[in-house]
Simulated scan of single mutants.
Amino acid sequence: MEFLTDYAGFLLKLISVALVIGFLLAMMASGKRKSQPGSLSVTKLNESYDAMKAELDHQLLDKKVLKNLEKEKKKKEKLEKKAQKKAPKADEVDKKRLYVLDFDGDIKASAVETMREEITAILSVAKSQDEVVVRLESGGGVVHGYGLAASQLQRIREANIPLTICVDKVAASGGYMMACVADKIIAAPFAILGSIGVVAQIPNVHRLLDKSLIDVELHTAGRYKRTLTMLGENTEEGREKFKQDLEDTHGLFKRFVSSQRPQLDIEDIATGDTWYGSEALENKLVDVVMTSDAYLVSHYANADVIQVVYKQPKGMAERLGLSFFSALEQKAVSWIGKLTQSRGY
């Protein structure tokens, strides 16, 4: 028993040392993460759809019917190959391509980092006959983050490639600012859209500090360098300037949406209110009520539907199984961001 106890103690020490060394290595390697190139994943969604259909046919249809279907399929493929050979130019037989991107937005619009790479890759090969479909989900966030995300989508429009945004759940505030860039907005019947407004909140603990006889000194150069603070005493002048900044940002938001969707009655819509998909159609916030799945399935027969995903390189912490620390950091940053953000869509 004494031997087992000593061995268990030694093993625990060894594990502890290994964890500490692994953590230190992760910290040292984290600085090199940005220099590592990411990878692009390209998946033809038609193939997975055809595979599912074939499996169902195999399980449900009579053998004789199944045999006839396979014969018809082979015959169709032969005819398509013949048509390709007879075509004088390769360009004339190129099928339309739908490039599918996913944007799942958080408060910082962090997904823009991968989306910008995906858009760059697509624009290097896309033709005017093709289309980019973005499946967008976001309740909004900081102004600069979603401003950049909308600007990235504008690159597609500027390249004269049709852009379609599909919203299955929510595209509100900054999310709708992104969506309105599209040539066509498609929303599921109960998707939430709108919230064209600006919100800001800052906690202030000055009175608590004052009761505890704790002074906070804040020195600025410039009258409006700091308007409202978390620790110091806020003034009416600072509050008025802060509110004016919100109004200015709201005006910028409204002008941007109006320039992208002139059919909207912006003064009636830009109240911060939201609408479900069917109501959004009546208010001209969207063009079609349909799920993203239905839209993509409708193109499988006549187009190559290709999902493009840019994968960021994993940091050392993730490779060593220490991603818990990374997740904890992200949660902390998100929480602090919600408390201290000055302006957000």
Rank of each mutant, 00 (worst) to 15 (best):
R97L: 07
E117G: 01
A90M: 10
E113P: 02
N68Q: 13
K73F: 08
Q84E: 15
D104W: 09
K89D: 10
I119R: 01
E77K: 12
L79R: 13
A90C: 08
E80M: 08
A90V: 12
L98D: 05
I119E: 00
P88M: 09
S110N: 06
N68D: 10
K78T: 08
A83C: 00
A121G: 07
K86A: 11
T114Q: 06
E77I: 05
I119N: 01
V100P: 00
L79D: 09
L101I: 02
L101M: 00
P88D: 00
E77A: 05
K64E: 14
E80R: 03
R97F: 09
K76H: 12
N68R: 15
K71T: 10
D106R: 04
D94N: 14
A87L: 04
V100C: 04
P88G: 03
D94V: 15
D91N: 09
K86I: 10
Q84W: 07
Y99A: 05
K96T: 00
E70K: 09
K64M: 13
A111L: 03
K64D: 12
E70W: 03
K95I: 10
E118S: 01
Y99C: 03
F103M: 01
I107K: 11
E80H: 08
V93Y: 11
V65F: 03
E72W: 09
V93D: 00
V112P: 03
A90W: 13
L101Y: 04
V112M: 04
E113R: 07
K78I: 06
K74Q: 13
K82P: 05
E113C: 00
D94I: 14
A111V: 12
S110T: 12
K67T: 00
K64P: 08
A111N: 05
E72H: 02
R116K: 15
R116C: 08
K75I: 09
F103I: 09
L98I: 11
F103K: 08
F103S: 08
E117R: 08
K67G: 00
K86C: 06
K75C: 11
E117V: 01
K73V: 06
D102C: 08
E117Q: 12
I107W: 12
S110Y: 03
D102A: 13
K64S: 03
F103E: 04
E113D: 10
K76S: 15
